[in-house]
């Protein structure tokens, strides 16, 4: 319980820092490469979600892949 309260305080504090004016070390005009579509985590949502479903239906693990879906894949 104490550990979880500490976690709440630390994360809450970090999130609150978002309101402060921290100088970004990568300026907006330096982000052209990061804005290139090849740097996207998930360029094609249908394909990514489909493969996640393929894995989730055949493995014991799940989660932290960023997709929310349904279905059983029981057969």
């Amino acid at each position: 319980m104490r550990a979880s309260l500490k976690l709440v305080v630390v994360v809450g504090g970090l999130l609150s820092l978002g309101a402060c004016s921290i100088q970004p070390w990568v300026k907006p005009y330096e982000r052209d490469r990061l804005a290139d579509p090849i740097m996207s985590w998930d360029r094609d949502a249908i394909s990514g979600a489909y493969l996640d479903h393929v894995y989730e239906s055949r493995e014991g693990s799940r989660g932290a892949t960023g997709t929310a879906g349904g279905g059983c894949g029981c057969n």
């Binding site: 976690l7 709440v8 994360v11 809450g12 999130l15 609150s16 978002g18 309101a19």
Partner: peptide, 12 residues
């Protein structure tokens, strides 16, 4: 955490 995060983000 979600509630705290939501509160802390209002002023950004």
């Amino acid at each position: 955490l979600a509630a705290l995060a939501a509160l802390s983000l209002i002023c950004v």
